[in-house]
Design a protein around this nucleic acid. Structure first.
Length: 578
DNA sequence: CTTTCTCTAAAGTGCACTGTGGCCAGTGC
């Protein structure tokens, strides 16, 4: 049994125990046990098999024995018995906003509901309102939550599919009949969520490639399998299409399947003006008066032939990129190699999984020159936020640790909560002792747009607030952004010289890419921050850079491209001089 | 279920918000 399967079982036990109204601390123990297994630095499956899981914090006698049973027998009797008590479809009810174990238990026990489909039916038949604990409003909210879930069916976050996409690309690239390979579609354009994955291979043996593709591991179902095209559903439900084309067709197919549709429509119109018809295979002359056809070896040649400089895939949304390319006004986009450091990262002091030292080492390994530590503040109780004394102690620890580091620095910051009225969770004299500060909203999400905007603006007006964390609080495919007037926030950021964060956590990617172009034009600076809660999550920077590119950002628009020396100077400047 | 200021038993995350039902319970951060 793999580590992932162990984690899944422990988490499922936690849900089942919740349904049974078990001791909350027992439930918490299974959750934290799952997390311990997930992030255990050594081969935990081997240790569990040998029954050597002793002295690990969070794994006591009971979990040790259960992990041993899983590792050696491939299953867990305790889990199977528990599971047999409830219908399988009950679990999906946990995905609905506003439903927890208590209410699900009532729905199941008193109304006999076993799935989201059952619940929807019951809501429509007005059978929920009137049940003790449920009213008309709840029934309505549930219907909305169900609609929300349905609208997200079959959509995936960019960050959640990156791994499997890169894996498939590698496998296809290594096939002897492959000449060129690329991923197209919204993934290539760095949309924050994607519906499906479009892969493209240049080959002279298309049938070999499509057959090979359908035998790759991790495929749940083959939807179609022809000579030049195959379509599959992966184990995670993601649809993945492959097209095999000739080497000559490859640039056209790459351009066509990368989209967006709107961008391609505009491009084809340009093409027609030159007397050429453009499709996924080639250019053709529409009549004898048309100019001779251009020679095309790669995608860049297509754009050049149409009088355009090369348009990076991230920009292809027909949002001004074609006009800019006509006039040579495209921005030189930021690249991951431009990053020198990053802000907004957590440690074990609040809800992170790694220590200061471990985070510093991981950042150095990535080639960064500095890493900002911004643990939660005291009001974020659920995240074990720091009180003043712990914050100042951490500050001292960071400065001491820096003494032993060469060519690398930790920066002492805080992710300070913006309280309901826009004041901050720490007083100015505490904040003044930090190198920088990220201010974020973590509670009272339901304020009106005006109140929320005023609240955030008040925080930005504070001299010590270097940047604004995850502006809208959205969790992609899970929770809508709270209401806030983004245009006003951007204006205020420009005025107060407050940086806005591009939070790279794949769940967030907030502020949204659609706003960055405008913010940049007003002189607002960006900080690309992973919001890392463990060392591996520093890799989120890759997603952040792709979304920054999508927002037309250049190196000079992003403060964490500054060298350690420059950023140190910059942080010392009063805000109005930044 | 785990940890510990323990040795057998107790403690272990607090608060805001929403909706329901009559002032509290469930959910989410």
């Amino acid at each position: 049994m793999s580590r992932e399967e162990m984690v899944t079982i422990l988490e499922e036990i936690a849900l089942l125990l919740e349904l049974k109204d078990e001791n909350p601390f027992k439930i918490k123990a299974y959750r934290s046990g799952a997390e311990t297994v997930r992030s255990f630095p050594d081969d935990i499956v081997a240790l569990a098999t040998a029954n050597q899981l002793t002295g690990i914090k969070g794994i006591g006698e009971a979990l040790r024995d259960k992990l041993h049973e899983m590792a050696t027998t491939g299953k867990l009797a305790f889990h199977e018995n528990l599971r047999a008590e409830f219908p399988a479809g009950l679990f999906e009810l946990f995905e609905l906003q506003g439903l927890g174990a208590k209410k699900i238990k009532i729905l199941h026990r008193d109304l006999g509901l076993c799935s989201v489909a059952d619940l929807k039916q019951a809501c429509l038949e007005n059978r929920i309102a009137g049940t003790p604990g449920f009213g008309a409003k709840t029934q309505n909210n549930l219907l909305e939550a169900i609609a929300h879930r349905e609208s997200h069916a079959g959509i995936f976050r960019l960050g959640n599919v990156a791994h499997v996409v890169e894996d498939m690309l590698d496998q296809l690239r290594n096939h002897p009949d492959t000449l060129r390979v690329a991923v197209c579609g919204s993934y290539r354009r760095a949309k924050e969520t994607v519906h499906d994955i479009d892969l493209l291979v240049a080959t002279s043996q298309p049938t070999e490639i499509t057959s090979f593709f359908t035998t790759l591991p991790g495929i749940q179902k083959i939807l179609a399998h022809g000579e030049t095209k195959a379509s599959v559903i992966l184990d995670n439900g993601l649809q993945c299409d492959l097209r095999a084309v000739s080497n000559a067709q490859f640039p056209f197919a790459l351009q066509y399947f990368s989209g967006s549709k709107e961008h391609n429509v505009a491009l084809r119109q340009l093409s027609l003006r030159k007397g050429w018809s453009l499709n996924e295979y080639d250019f053709t002359r529409v009549n004898d008066d048309a100019a001779p056809l251009p020679v095309v070896h790669d995608e860049k040649d297509i754009y050049e032939a149409l009088g355009l400089s090369f348009i990076e895939p991230e920009l292809r949304e027909n949002m001004g990129e074609i006009e800019a390319a006509q006039h040579g006004k495209l921005p030189r986009l930021i690249d991951i190699s431009n990053l020198r450091g990053t802000f907004h990262n957590h440690t074990t002091a609040s809800d992170g999984k790694n220590s200061l030292e471990e985070m510093a080492a991981a950042a150095q390994e990535l080639g960064l020159q500095y890493l900002g530590i911004a643990d939660h503040s005291k009001s974020s109780f659920q995240a074990n936020g720091l009180h003043e004394d712990r914050l100042l102690q951490q500050c001292a620890n960071i400065r001491a640790l820096n003494e032993s580091l060469d060519g690398f620095r930790l920066l002492a910051g805080s992710e300070v909560d913006i309280l309901k009225d826009g004041t901050l969770d720490f007083s100015d004299d505490i904040l003044a002792q930090l190198d920088y500060c990220v201010a974020s909203v973590h509670n009272a999400f339901t304020l009106s747009e005006d109140d929320m905007t005023r609240r955030i603006i008040r925080a930005m007006e504070n001299e010590h607030v270097t940047m604004l964390g995850h502006l809208t609080g959205r969790l992609l495919l899970k929770r809508e952004a709270y209401s806030v007037n983004i245009a006003k926030i951007i204006d205020c950021a420009a005025e107060t010289r407050t940086v806005i964060e591009l939070n790279c956590n794949p769940m967030r990617l907030d502020m949204d890419w659609r706003w960055w172009h405008r913010a940049r034009d007003k002189g607002v600076l960006c900080s690309i921050n992973p919001d890392a809660h463990k060392t591996e999550q520093l890799q989120f920077l890759h997603f952040g850079v792709r979304l920054a590119r999508k927002g037309w950002l250049r190196r000079e628009d992003v403060i964490n491209t500054l060298s350690l020396e420059k950023i140190t100077e910059w942080l010392k400047l009063p805000k109005e001089k930044r």
